[in-house]
């Protein structure tokens, strides 16, 4: 069975360019604005959408994504509504993969089996659950794979060659390389170090490797895209979204435009990297 994620990465490989993976928080700052933002992403140049599931205690996230989660929860977002959002997105968009990203507790409380059925039915393609390392695979990873969802794992600079096989085992779809030790939204990584790290991971796996943390604009995206199969951008989009909110924290058409414009800009960087590599 080929998932949308596998299909998308294979297509882009044929095109000879990296994928642009965009992260936004579902329900930030409210359901209506958020669904409009998500619907605008594919046209703006997003190849894969990571949709954050807000959680009160996001231990691995920096201030931007923390605040996005707070806004979403304040706006009444729940896991149920996030799945509803995916269902609504899928009505008009059949090909762009959606990966839900977040922390385990809301899924655990929703009920793992019920969640997997509902997520699959809604049109979710993969999961990234930050606080589920391979040591806890029985919780969600193995049931998710069985349900036909990709389970995407994070690899980090602390994941050494000895540990990599354990991390890659049961990983599917793609590998998300967290390019720095630190929280989301931290300083930009060194592009040379990143491509060396990607090469190291590729010695252990045939899966595409997407790189995240610290990508802010077309330039940083181009630098990363030259040495990876995908570029993940999150905090920068959330910052752009936040700037458009009015005094009451409400969004509008300007919100959608701001995010789409930045995605388009970053997408141009990702595409430019292919030309550099081809020349």
């Amino acid at each position: 069975m080929t998932t949308r994620i596998e299909k998308r990465f294979a297509e882009l490989k044929d095109e000879g360019r990296a994928a642009l993976v965009t992260f936004v928080m579902s329900g930030d700052p409210d359901y209506e604005t958020s669904i409009a933002v998500i619907k605008a992403l594919p046209k703006a140049g997003a190849d894969v959408i990571e949709l954050g599931m807000p959680f009160t205690d996001p231990m691995a996230d920096g201030p931007s994504i923390q605040a996005a989660g707070v806004r979403a929860l304040k706006g009444g977002q729940t896991l149920k509504k996030t799945l509803q959002m995916v269902r609504e997105f899928r009505k008009g968009e059949a090909n762009t993969p959606i990966v839900l990203m977040g922390y385990y507790n809301p899924i655990y409380i929703y009920g793992v089996d019920k969640f997997l059925v509902d997520a699959k039915e809604a049109g979710v393609d993969g999961l990234i659950v930050v606080d589920l390392p391979p040591e806890e695979d029985e919780e969600l990873c193995l049931p998710a794979l069985k349900a036909g969802l990709n389970f995407i794992r994070l690899a980090t600079p602390t994941t050494d060659d000895k540990r990599l096989p354990a991390v890659l085992n049961n990983t599917s779809g793609f590998v998300y390389y967290v390019s720095i030790t630190g929280i989301t939204g931290s300083a930009a990584p060194d592009a040379a170090k990143v491509s060396a790290a990607v090469a190291r991971i590729k010695r252990h796996t045939k899966l595409p490797v997407a790189v995240g943390f610290g990508v802010k604009n077309a330039d940083s995206a181009r630098a990363i895209a030259a040495g990876a199969d995908g570029v993940v951008v999150g905090s920068a989009l959330i910052d752009a979204l936040k700037k458009t909110l009015d005094g009451n924290g409400k969004g509008g058409p300007a919100t959608v435009k701001a995010v789409a414009d930045l995605v388009a800009d970053i997408a141009s960087g990702v595409k430019a990297a292919r030309k550099v590599a081809a020349e």
Partner: peptide, 20 residues
């Protein structure tokens, strides 16, 4: 050996912290 007391406990942390 995996840090469980019955169903409780465990190691629910980000990959960055796992080696530590």
């Amino acid at each position: 050996e995996r840090g469980h007391f019955g169903i409780y406990g465990g190691r629910f942390v980000a990959e960055t912290l796992m080696p530590l």
